[in-house]
């Protein structure tokens, strides 16, 4: 994107907690930076700051989003530059208990200011649909919904889609996280089509359940940088779709054939 053009703000949200919003935000932000875009990942989960640890930047925080909106510091001072990517920045959440520390209008103003200078603003929304969530979506042009193939997560996703529409954010895109193809095959987990059928939104991508995500989070290095990890590939595909490339969905059957099952196939022909 050329300089002077306005950036795009995308909120990552889910309704239900624990489905992978923060991991998704970190990976999409990092992935976009890997593609050469300038990116700010904004942690809007005030009181429960986490994006910093997922990205491995927790030791560098001096100021946070509340300092910025209260004008205790300049925006640039609060932005933490990523260790690995020149054009990737984190705006950390505050750890205050007061979830109303940032107002909707302050958020809109902040995001607009960021959009002047960066290509993508990725907003990591808090769980729930209360005030914190409301202000996190306030500055967003687009929305990404994260869900897992479970009834509770899908139900909450539907609720959030409704609220986004009420706030004039239309056609959110869906990421289905933590798919376990072995369970899908047994008929014990809803398929991608089942979920799309219910939610009636466009699919942005699928991410298989992958222990590499835990390992990479332990190290504070988003898995999108891991060339070998299947979840890394999934996130790279998602990033490519965000920037407008057409990428086929991961073939989950192929993925499950690890070295072991390939060997079994060789010996037992199945």
């Amino acid at each position: 994107m050329e300089k002077g053009n306005k950036g795009i703000s995308i909120v990552v949200t889910s309704g239900k907690g624990g489905v992978g919003k923060t991991t998704t935000s970190a990976n999409i932000g990092t992935g976009l930076a890997m593609q050469g875009y300038s990116v700010v990942v904004l942690d809007a989960d005030i009181g429960l700051r986490n994006l910093d640890v997922v990205m491995g930047l927790e030791n560098r925080i001096v100021y946070d989003i509340v300092d910025v909106v209260n004008k205790n510091c300049k925006l640039k001072q609060a932005l933490i530059k990523d260790k690995r990517h020149e054009k990737l920045f984190l705006l950390p959440a505050a750890q205050t208990k007061d979830k109303t520390a940032v107002s909707t209008s302050q958020m809109v103003e902040l995001v607009n200011e960021l959009k002047e200078q960066y290509d993508y603003i990725i907003i990591d929304s808090p769980a729930g649909i209360e005030q914190g969530f409301q202000y996190s979506i306030a500055g967003a042009d687009e929305a990404i919904i994260v869900t897992t193939p479970e009834v509770s997560a899908v139900r909450d996703a539907d609720r959030v889609i409704g609220i986004l529409e009420a706030n004039e954010i239309y056609q959110p895109k869906l990421i289905i996280n933590r798919i376990r193809q072995d369970m899908v095959k047994r008929g014990d987990m809803m398929t991608i089509d089942d979920i799309l059928d219910i939610l009636a939104v466009k699919l942005l991508g699928i991410v298989p359940d992958d222990e590499n995500v835990v390992v990479s989070t332990n190290r504070g290095e988003p898995v999108v940088m891991d060339e070998k990890a299947i979840s890394g590939r999934a996130y790279r595909n998602i990033v490519k779709r965000i920037i407008g490339e057409e990428v086929e969905l991961l073939n989950l059957d192929e993925i499950n054939q690890g070295r072991f099952s390939k060997m079994m196939k060789l010996f037992f022909g199945r």
Binding site: E150, V151, V154, R155, D158, R159, G162, V184, R186, G187, D188, M189, M190, T191, D194, D197, I198
Partner: peptide, 19 residues
């Protein structure tokens, strides 16, 4: 009945009221 079909049916019903 497959558990995923049970899940889907239950979801469809509950969403009608949620929506």
């Amino acid at each position: 009945e497959k558990s995923k079909d049970v899940a889907k049916e239950r979801l469809k019903l509950v969403l009608v009221h949620d929506r």
